[in-house]
Computed example of a mutant assay.
Amino acid sequence: MKDTWAKITATVFYVGYMKPAPGTWGSLAALPLALLIYWIGGFWLFLIAIPAGYIKGYIATKWMTEGADNHDPSEIVIDEVIGQWIALLPVFFGAYWVNADVLGLWPGWVAAFVLFRLFDITKPGPVGWADRKDNATGVMLDDVIAGVFAALFVVLLAIIWHVFLL
């Protein structure tokens, strides 16, 4: 039972087995999940879902990789989901702050997705440092950092758009 729960969680309902590029599929799966959480409980539930998902993902990743040679198998995509959610935080906060339709902020969704994938794939600086840790912390942490970088760039792009281009 523990193994089944860990596999469902770590692979995000088996999305991690989709080929090619399971990490990209995991990031794509994060989008409707984020929207569902937002629609159910608003910005604050979404905000709470990130650390809750991180903890659940860490435990599932640890169980799936315990004793294995590969500590970051490609089918584990819960880390991409959490990183993608972090990248979406500025978009969801913006919708909450101005009481806008979150889907109306679609350019922010696109920017968050593209930027997160860019940082997750290229692994600059601290993203690469975290990725080189051969444990569940490294699996989860590199995507958290990539998500933070992406979120910061989403904010920067929003400032440029709303202050200088509108």
Rank of each mutant, 00 (worst) to 15 (best):
residue 122 T to H: 08
residue 110 V to L: 13
residue 133 K to N: 02
residue 40 I to K: 13
residue 124 P to S: 08
residue 20 P to M: 09
residue 116 F to C: 02
residue 7 K to G: 00
residue 109 W to Q: 06
residue 114 V to S: 01
residue 107 P to K: 06
residue 113 F to Y: 05
residue 78 I to S: 11
residue 132 R to P: 07
residue 4 T to N: 14
residue 64 M to R: 15
residue 20 P to C: 12
residue 36 L to S: 09
residue 133 K to F: 11
residue 103 L to D: 00
residue 138 G to H: 07
residue 90 P to N: 09
residue 112 A to V: 01
residue 84 Q to W: 02
residue 140 M to T: 08
residue 133 K to P: 06
residue 39 W to V: 07
residue 151 A to E: 01
residue 150 A to V: 02
residue 116 F to V: 03
residue 50 I to S: 09
residue 32 P to Y: 00
residue 154 V to E: 02
residue 62 K to A: 12
residue 98 V to L: 14
residue 79 D to H: 10
residue 161 W to V: 02
residue 104 G to M: 06
residue 52 A to W: 08
residue 98 V to T: 12
residue 90 P to F: 03
residue 67 G to D: 05
residue 78 I to E: 09
residue 98 V to W: 13
residue 26 G to Q: 11
residue 50 I to H: 08
residue 44 W to T: 10
residue 94 G to N: 13
residue 152 L to W: 01
residue 3 D to A: 15
residue 57 G to N: 09
residue 143 D to C: 07
residue 64 M to S: 11
residue 16 G to K: 10
residue 87 A to I: 05
residue 146 A to S: 09
residue 115 L to C: 01
residue 77 V to A: 04
residue 148 V to S: 03
residue 13 F to M: 15
residue 108 G to R: 07
residue 114 V to D: 00
residue 104 G to N: 04
residue 164 F to T: 03
residue 93 F to W: 11
residue 150 A to G: 07
residue 8 I to K: 14
residue 122 T to S: 13
residue 5 W to F: 15
residue 123 K to Q: 08
residue 127 V to N: 13
residue 35 L to R: 00
residue 2 K to T: 12
residue 52 A to Y: 06
residue 90 P to T: 08
residue 95 A to N: 06
residue 14 Y to E: 14
residue 120 D to K: 04
residue 100 A to K: 13
residue 61 T to E: 06
residue 94 G to I: 12
residue 76 I to R: 10
residue 112 A to Q: 06
residue 130 A to R: 07
residue 27 S to K: 00
residue 153 F to N: 05
residue 73 P to V: 06
residue 106 W to L: 02
residue 35 L to I: 01
residue 81 V to M: 14
residue 41 G to C: 08
residue 54 Y to R: 09
residue 151 A to D: 03
residue 35 L to C: 04
residue 15 V to I: 15
